[in-house]
Design a protein around this nucleic acid. Structure first.
Lengths: 142, 142
DNA sequence: GCGGAAACTTGATTCATTCCAGAAGACTGG
DNA sequence: CCAGTCTTCTGGAATGAATCAAGTTTCCGC
Protein backbone atom coordinates (compact mmCIF):
# COMPACT_ATOMS: atom_id res chain seq x y z
CA UNK A 1 0.00 0.00 0.00
CA UNK A 2 2.78 2.40 0.88
CA UNK A 3 4.73 1.03 -2.03
CA UNK A 4 1.60 1.60 -4.10
CA UNK A 5 1.74 5.31 -3.32
CA UNK A 6 5.40 5.24 -4.19
CA UNK A 7 4.54 3.77 -7.57
CA UNK A 8 1.94 6.45 -8.15
CA UNK A 9 4.38 9.21 -7.34
CA UNK A 10 7.08 7.82 -9.56
CA UNK A 11 4.59 7.40 -12.37
CA UNK A 12 4.11 11.17 -12.49
CA UNK A 13 7.79 12.00 -11.99
CA UNK A 14 7.41 13.24 -8.44
CA UNK A 15 9.92 12.47 -5.74
CA UNK A 16 8.94 10.09 -3.01
CA UNK A 17 8.98 11.89 0.33
CA UNK A 18 7.46 11.20 3.72
CA UNK A 19 5.08 14.18 3.60
CA UNK A 20 3.72 13.07 0.24
CA UNK A 21 3.19 9.49 1.33
CA UNK A 22 1.48 10.71 4.49
CA UNK A 23 -0.83 13.00 2.52
CA UNK A 24 -1.77 10.21 0.13
CA UNK A 25 -2.46 7.86 3.03
CA UNK A 26 -4.58 10.49 4.78
CA UNK A 27 -6.67 11.07 1.66
CA UNK A 28 -7.13 7.34 1.10
CA UNK A 29 -8.53 6.91 4.62
CA UNK A 30 -10.50 10.16 4.74
CA UNK A 31 -12.23 11.30 1.56
CA UNK A 32 -13.37 14.94 1.28
CA UNK A 33 -11.22 16.52 3.95
CA UNK A 34 -10.18 20.15 4.11
CA UNK A 35 -6.60 21.33 4.27
CA UNK A 36 -6.55 21.77 8.03
CA UNK A 37 -7.73 18.21 8.53
CA UNK A 38 -5.11 16.92 6.12
CA UNK A 39 -2.46 18.72 8.14
CA UNK A 40 -3.77 17.16 11.36
CA UNK A 41 -3.90 13.68 9.84
CA UNK A 42 -0.43 13.97 8.39
CA UNK A 43 0.96 15.16 11.72
CA UNK A 44 -0.54 12.19 13.50
CA UNK A 45 1.98 10.19 11.53
CA UNK A 46 4.71 12.75 10.86
CA UNK A 47 4.60 15.41 13.59
CA UNK A 48 7.24 17.66 12.07
CA UNK A 49 5.50 18.36 8.76
CA UNK A 50 4.77 22.05 8.23
CA UNK A 51 1.48 23.35 6.97
CA UNK A 52 3.35 24.86 4.06
CA UNK A 53 4.56 21.43 3.00
CA UNK A 54 1.00 20.14 3.00
CA UNK A 55 -0.18 23.02 0.84
CA UNK A 56 2.77 22.40 -1.46
CA UNK A 57 2.17 18.67 -1.64
CA UNK A 58 -1.55 19.07 -2.28
CA UNK A 59 -0.83 21.46 -5.11
CA UNK A 60 1.79 19.14 -6.60
CA UNK A 61 -0.49 16.11 -6.36
CA UNK A 62 -3.41 18.05 -7.79
CA UNK A 63 -1.34 19.28 -10.73
CA UNK A 64 -0.12 15.73 -11.29
CA UNK A 65 -3.69 14.41 -11.24
CA UNK A 66 -3.23 12.07 -8.27
CA UNK A 67 -5.76 13.93 -6.15
CA UNK A 68 -8.67 16.15 -6.98
CA UNK A 69 -9.42 19.47 -5.42
CA UNK A 70 -13.05 20.30 -4.80
CA UNK A 71 -14.30 23.58 -3.48
CA UNK A 72 -18.04 24.05 -3.12
CA UNK A 73 -19.10 27.70 -2.89
CA UNK A 74 -18.75 29.04 0.62
CA UNK A 75 -16.47 26.27 1.85
CA UNK A 76 -12.76 25.86 2.13
CA UNK A 77 -10.94 23.65 -0.35
CA UNK A 78 -11.27 19.88 0.13
CA UNK A 79 -9.33 17.10 -1.49
CA UNK A 80 -10.05 13.52 -2.46
CA UNK A 81 -8.02 10.73 -3.95
CA UNK A 82 -10.66 9.31 -6.28
CA UNK A 83 -9.73 10.58 -9.69
CA UNK A 84 -10.54 9.75 -13.25
CA UNK A 85 -13.92 8.15 -12.68
CA UNK A 86 -16.06 11.19 -13.44
CA UNK A 87 -18.05 11.10 -10.25
CA UNK A 88 -19.81 14.07 -8.71
CA UNK A 89 -20.73 15.34 -5.26
CA UNK A 90 -23.69 16.12 -3.04
CA UNK A 91 -23.07 18.92 -0.58
CA UNK A 92 -25.21 19.53 2.50
CA UNK A 93 -26.24 23.17 2.76
CA UNK A 94 -26.55 22.83 6.49
CA UNK A 95 -23.40 21.09 7.68
CA UNK A 96 -21.22 21.02 4.57
CA UNK A 97 -20.92 17.23 4.46
CA UNK A 98 -19.92 15.86 1.08
CA UNK A 99 -20.91 12.53 -0.45
CA UNK A 100 -19.92 10.91 -3.71
CA UNK A 101 -22.38 10.38 -6.53
CA UNK A 102 -21.64 8.19 -9.50
CA UNK A 103 -22.22 9.86 -12.81
CA UNK A 104 -25.76 8.87 -13.62
CA UNK A 105 -25.14 8.17 -17.25
CA UNK A 106 -21.48 7.34 -17.59
CA UNK A 107 -20.87 8.99 -20.91
CA UNK A 108 -22.50 12.18 -19.74
CA UNK A 109 -24.54 13.23 -22.77
CA UNK A 110 -26.19 15.96 -20.76
CA UNK A 111 -22.90 17.61 -20.03
CA UNK A 112 -22.41 19.04 -23.47
CA UNK A 113 -23.18 22.72 -23.38
CA UNK A 114 -25.99 23.79 -25.69
CA UNK A 115 -24.10 26.93 -26.68
CA UNK A 116 -20.45 27.01 -25.80
CA UNK A 117 -19.81 30.66 -26.76
CA UNK A 118 -16.65 29.53 -28.53
CA UNK A 119 -15.18 28.03 -25.40
CA UNK A 120 -13.25 24.79 -25.59
CA UNK A 121 -14.84 22.74 -22.83
CA UNK A 122 -12.72 20.00 -21.27
CA UNK A 123 -14.70 19.16 -18.16
CA UNK A 124 -18.20 19.41 -16.76
CA UNK A 125 -18.50 19.55 -13.00
CA UNK A 126 -21.76 18.81 -11.24
CA UNK A 127 -22.56 19.74 -7.66
CA UNK A 128 -25.84 18.71 -6.07
CA UNK A 129 -27.01 20.89 -3.21
CA UNK A 130 -29.35 19.60 -0.56
CA UNK A 131 -29.69 18.38 2.99
CA UNK A 132 -27.90 15.36 4.37
CA UNK A 133 -29.83 12.67 6.30
CA UNK A 134 -28.52 13.85 9.68
CA UNK A 135 -29.50 17.46 9.16
CA UNK A 136 -32.87 16.44 7.70
CA UNK A 137 -33.56 14.42 10.84
CA UNK A 138 -32.58 17.29 13.08
CA UNK A 139 -34.89 19.61 11.25
CA UNK A 140 -37.83 17.21 11.37
CA UNK A 141 -37.27 16.43 15.04
CA UNK A 142 -37.04 20.16 15.56
CA UNK B 1 -35.97 50.86 -14.32
CA UNK B 2 -35.05 52.24 -10.93
CA UNK B 3 -38.65 51.86 -9.89
CA UNK B 4 -38.41 48.30 -11.15
CA UNK B 5 -35.64 47.56 -8.67
CA UNK B 6 -37.74 49.24 -6.02
CA UNK B 7 -40.59 46.88 -6.80
CA UNK B 8 -38.25 43.89 -6.59
CA UNK B 9 -36.96 44.95 -3.22
CA UNK B 10 -40.41 45.56 -1.78
CA UNK B 11 -41.58 42.21 -3.08
CA UNK B 12 -39.11 40.49 -0.78
CA UNK B 13 -39.70 42.81 2.17
CA UNK B 14 -36.39 44.62 1.92
CA UNK B 15 -36.04 48.32 2.47
CA UNK B 16 -35.31 50.49 -0.54
CA UNK B 17 -31.93 52.18 -0.09
CA UNK B 18 -29.50 53.87 -2.41
CA UNK B 19 -26.79 51.24 -1.96
CA UNK B 20 -29.20 48.45 -2.82
CA UNK B 21 -30.48 50.20 -5.92
CA UNK B 22 -26.91 50.90 -6.99
CA UNK B 23 -25.90 47.26 -6.52
CA UNK B 24 -28.87 46.02 -8.53
CA UNK B 25 -28.09 48.50 -11.31
CA UNK B 26 -24.44 47.45 -11.33
CA UNK B 27 -25.35 43.77 -11.61
CA UNK B 28 -27.85 44.44 -14.37
CA UNK B 29 -25.21 46.20 -16.45
CA UNK B 30 -22.31 43.88 -15.58
CA UNK B 31 -23.03 40.18 -15.21
CA UNK B 32 -20.52 37.96 -13.39
CA UNK B 33 -18.59 40.59 -11.46
CA UNK B 34 -16.66 40.00 -8.28
CA UNK B 35 -17.25 41.91 -5.09
CA UNK B 36 -14.46 44.42 -5.63
CA UNK B 37 -15.85 45.33 -9.02
CA UNK B 38 -19.32 45.72 -7.57
CA UNK B 39 -17.90 48.11 -5.00
CA UNK B 40 -16.17 50.12 -7.74
CA UNK B 41 -19.30 50.24 -9.88
CA UNK B 42 -21.48 51.27 -6.98
CA UNK B 43 -19.07 54.03 -5.98
CA UNK B 44 -19.10 55.41 -9.51
CA UNK B 45 -22.69 56.32 -8.72
CA UNK B 46 -22.64 56.63 -4.94
CA UNK B 47 -19.09 57.51 -3.84
CA UNK B 48 -19.77 57.25 -0.13
CA UNK B 49 -20.89 53.64 -0.01
CA UNK B 50 -18.72 51.51 2.25
CA UNK B 51 -17.41 48.11 1.25
CA UNK B 52 -19.20 46.63 4.22
CA UNK B 53 -22.52 47.92 2.87
CA UNK B 54 -21.88 46.18 -0.45
CA UNK B 55 -21.06 42.89 1.25
CA UNK B 56 -24.18 43.31 3.37
CA UNK B 57 -26.38 44.17 0.42
CA UNK B 58 -25.08 41.28 -1.65
CA UNK B 59 -25.79 38.88 1.18
CA UNK B 60 -29.28 40.29 1.69
CA UNK B 61 -30.09 40.16 -2.02
CA UNK B 62 -28.69 36.65 -2.31
CA UNK B 63 -30.72 35.42 0.64
CA UNK B 64 -33.79 37.06 -0.85
CA UNK B 65 -33.16 35.39 -4.19
CA UNK B 66 -32.79 38.59 -6.22
CA UNK B 67 -29.20 37.83 -7.16
CA UNK B 68 -27.22 34.65 -7.41
CA UNK B 69 -23.80 34.06 -5.98
CA UNK B 70 -21.42 31.96 -8.01
CA UNK B 71 -18.01 30.91 -6.85
CA UNK B 72 -15.98 28.65 -9.14
CA UNK B 73 -13.16 26.84 -7.36
CA UNK B 74 -10.10 29.01 -7.00
CA UNK B 75 -11.88 32.27 -7.70
CA UNK B 76 -13.45 34.95 -5.55
CA UNK B 77 -17.20 35.16 -5.29
CA UNK B 78 -19.07 36.64 -8.26
CA UNK B 79 -22.66 37.74 -8.51
CA UNK B 80 -25.25 37.91 -11.24
CA UNK B 81 -28.79 39.13 -11.45
CA UNK B 82 -30.18 36.39 -13.68
CA UNK B 83 -32.08 34.13 -11.35
CA UNK B 84 -34.68 31.43 -11.62
CA UNK B 85 -33.94 30.32 -15.16
CA UNK B 86 -31.70 27.37 -14.34
CA UNK B 87 -28.80 28.40 -16.49
CA UNK B 88 -25.22 27.31 -15.98
CA UNK B 89 -21.74 28.67 -16.55
CA UNK B 90 -18.57 28.11 -18.51
CA UNK B 91 -15.41 29.19 -16.72
CA UNK B 92 -12.11 29.77 -18.46
CA UNK B 93 -9.27 28.00 -16.66
CA UNK B 94 -6.82 30.53 -18.00
CA UNK B 95 -8.35 33.95 -17.37
CA UNK B 96 -11.38 33.15 -15.22
CA UNK B 97 -13.90 34.64 -17.62
CA UNK B 98 -17.44 33.40 -17.12
CA UNK B 99 -20.12 32.93 -19.75
CA UNK B 100 -23.74 31.86 -19.44
CA UNK B 101 -24.98 28.56 -20.80
CA UNK B 102 -28.62 27.74 -21.15
CA UNK B 103 -29.62 24.46 -19.58
CA UNK B 104 -29.30 22.04 -22.46
CA UNK B 105 -32.44 20.10 -21.68
CA UNK B 106 -34.67 22.42 -19.71
CA UNK B 107 -36.12 19.87 -17.35
CA UNK B 108 -32.67 18.54 -16.50
CA UNK B 109 -33.25 14.78 -16.45
CA UNK B 110 -29.55 14.16 -16.11
CA UNK B 111 -29.36 16.14 -12.95
CA UNK B 112 -31.03 13.57 -10.78
CA UNK B 113 -28.40 11.81 -8.75
CA UNK B 114 -28.19 8.10 -9.34
CA UNK B 115 -27.67 7.42 -5.65
CA UNK B 116 -28.50 10.28 -3.34
CA UNK B 117 -27.16 8.67 -0.14
CA UNK B 118 -30.33 9.78 1.63
CA UNK B 119 -29.74 13.41 0.83
CA UNK B 120 -32.66 15.64 -0.10
CA UNK B 121 -31.42 17.34 -3.25
CA UNK B 122 -32.92 20.72 -4.10
CA UNK B 123 -30.50 22.00 -6.73
CA UNK B 124 -28.02 20.74 -9.25
CA UNK B 125 -25.27 23.12 -10.24
CA UNK B 126 -23.22 22.61 -13.39
CA UNK B 127 -19.91 24.27 -14.13
CA UNK B 128 -18.16 23.72 -17.44
CA UNK B 129 -14.40 24.19 -17.38
CA UNK B 130 -12.45 25.08 -20.47
CA UNK B 131 -10.68 27.78 -22.40
CA UNK B 132 -12.32 30.92 -23.63
CA UNK B 133 -11.89 32.05 -27.28
CA UNK B 134 -9.42 34.82 -26.37
CA UNK B 135 -7.15 32.53 -24.37
CA UNK B 136 -7.39 29.78 -27.01
CA UNK B 137 -6.24 32.30 -29.64
CA UNK B 138 -3.34 33.44 -27.50
CA UNK B 139 -2.24 29.88 -27.01
CA UNK B 140 -2.43 29.00 -30.69
CA UNK B 141 -0.69 32.20 -31.77
CA UNK B 142 1.88 31.53 -29.10
C1' DG C 1 29.25 8.49 -1.85
C1' DC C 2 28.55 13.16 -4.54
C1' DG C 3 26.59 17.08 -6.86
C1' DG C 4 22.55 19.43 -8.32
C1' DA C 5 17.79 20.13 -7.98
C1' DA C 6 13.55 19.52 -5.96
C1' DA C 7 11.19 19.62 -1.62
C1' DC C 8 10.68 21.09 3.16
C1' DT C 9 10.87 24.43 7.44
C1' DT C 10 10.10 28.66 9.50
C1' DG C 11 8.08 32.99 9.57
C1' DA C 12 5.91 36.79 7.59
C1' DT C 13 2.43 38.61 4.39
C1' DT C 14 -1.56 39.09 1.53
C1' DC C 15 -6.32 39.72 0.74
C1' DA C 16 -11.27 38.43 0.69
C1' DT C 17 -14.48 38.34 4.09
C1' DT C 18 -16.47 39.07 8.63
C1' DC C 19 -17.16 41.31 13.18
C1' DC C 20 -18.17 45.35 15.96
C1' DA C 21 -20.09 49.82 17.77
C1' DG C 22 -22.11 53.86 16.76
C1' DA C 23 -24.60 56.98 13.31
C1' DA C 24 -27.85 57.47 9.68
C1' DG C 25 -31.74 56.37 7.10
C1' DA C 26 -36.28 54.13 5.95
C1' DC C 27 -40.84 52.56 7.09
C1' DT C 28 -45.19 52.59 10.51
C1' DG C 29 -48.70 54.52 13.24
C1' DG C 30 -50.59 58.67 14.83
C1' DC D 1 -46.62 65.69 8.12
C1' DC D 2 -43.99 64.01 12.39
C1' DA D 3 -41.94 61.19 15.99
C1' DG D 4 -40.48 56.48 17.24
C1' DT D 5 -38.41 52.29 16.13
C1' DC D 6 -35.90 49.09 13.82
C1' DT D 7 -33.19 48.04 9.92
C1' DT D 8 -29.33 49.43 7.41
C1' DC D 9 -24.99 51.90 6.61
C1' DT D 10 -20.28 53.85 7.94
C1' DG D 11 -15.64 53.36 9.46
C1' DG D 12 -12.24 50.68 11.38
C1' DA D 13 -10.33 46.56 13.17
C1' DA D 14 -9.92 41.51 13.15
C1' DT D 15 -10.04 36.85 11.20
C1' DG D 16 -8.21 33.05 8.66
C1' DA D 17 -7.22 30.47 4.43
C1' DA D 18 -3.77 30.70 1.31
C1' DT D 19 0.59 32.44 -0.61
C1' DC D 20 5.32 34.27 -0.71
C1' DA D 21 10.30 34.38 0.52
C1' DA D 22 14.86 32.83 2.26
C1' DG D 23 17.49 29.36 3.83
C1' DT D 24 18.16 24.33 4.90
C1' DT D 25 17.39 19.53 4.21
C1' DT D 26 16.40 15.52 1.52
C1' DC D 27 16.09 12.84 -2.53
C1' DC D 28 17.75 10.82 -6.92
C1' DG D 29 20.89 9.91 -10.99
C1' DC D 30 25.61 9.21 -11.76
Amino acid sequence: MTSDFETQLRAVSLRVTRPRLAVLAALRDHPHVDTDTVIALVRADQPTVSHQAVYDVLRALTDAGLVRRIQPAGAVACYESRVGDNHHHIVCRSCGAIADVECAVGHAPCLTASDDHGYVVDEAEVVYWGTCPDCATDRTAH
